[in-house]
Amino acid sequence: MFQRISTYLYLRPRLSLALLLLPPLVWFLVVYIGSLLSMLVNSFFYLDGFTGQVVRQFTLDTYAKLFIPTNVQILSRTLFMALAVTLGCIVLAFPLSYYMARIASPRMKTFLYLAVTLPLWSSYVVRVYSWKLILAQEGIISWFARLLHLDGVLNWYLSSPLLGGPSLGISLTGVFLVFVYIWLPYMILPIQTALERVPKSLIEASSDLGASPAQTFRNVILPLAFPGVVAGSIFTFSLTLGDFIVPSLFGNSSFFIGKAVLTYQGTSGNIPLAAAFTMGPIVIMIVYLLIARRLGAFDAL
C-alpha cells in the first residue's frame, strides 16, 4: 500500500510538492493573511453608539479618530518606548554577545547560552509579576537603596517629572526596565550569531595592516555585526509595540497601543477603532523593516 502511494507520488513530483505545500499555504493564507485582511476591512467600518453594534459601511471616520490628540499621544508614547527599549537592549546585549562569541571558553559559552535562554522557558507572566516585587515601593530595589543610604538618590530620581512616579513600579522607568529585561534574549542571540560569523582572518588581517584594536572594532567588527543588531532590534521593537501586559502591570496606567486596542475591543466592543489602532504598529513596522533592509539586515539571509 505505502509502496504504491510512494510510487504514485514519485512519478508525479508536482502533486507531491502541492501536497507538501498545502498545509503551510492554507495556514499562511487563511490564518495569517486572512485575519490581517479581516482586520483591515473592519477598520473601515464604524461603531453605532446607540446599539453598540458595528455598522458594516465604508467610512474613514474611524481612521480620523486615530488622529485626535489622545490617540496620537498613545501612538507616540509607544513608539518612543519601543525605541528606548531597543537602544537599551543593544547597549546591554552587545558586550555580552561579544564576550560569548569571541572571548568565552566553550564551557563558559554553553553556560551563558543556557543562562540567556533559560528564562524563555518559564512563563512570561510569572517573570513579569516577579518584577512587581523588585520595583515596588516596599520592594527589593528601594530596600537596597535604604540599606545603602541611597534612598535620597532614588527619591530624587522618582521626583523627576516624566520618568518618575510614586515608586519605580509606578513609573515609565519601571515599564522600560521590565521591557528591557524580557526582550533582552531576543537581542543577544542575533548579535551573538552575527559576531560569530565575523571571520578571524579578517581581524588578524586588520591588525597586520596596522589597525589599532579600536579601529578594528569600529571598521571591521561593528559593520559586520550590524545586521545582527538590526535583526535583534526588529524583535525588541515589534514586541514592545504590541505588548499590553507590561504597561498594565507597571507604569501609571497610561495607555500603550496594546492596552488601547484591548480597551476599545475588549470593553466597549469598538472593533473598528481597535482595528484602525492596530494598523498603526503595522505601518510603523513596515517602515522599520524597509529601513532595516536599507541597512543590510537581510543581506545575510
Binding site: Q73, I74, A260
Partner: peptide, 8 residues
C-alpha cells in the same frame, strides 16, 4: 473620554 483622561 475615559481613555483620554486615564490613558494619558
Amino acid at each position: 473620554e475615559f481613555t483620554a483622561i486615564v490613558g494619558q
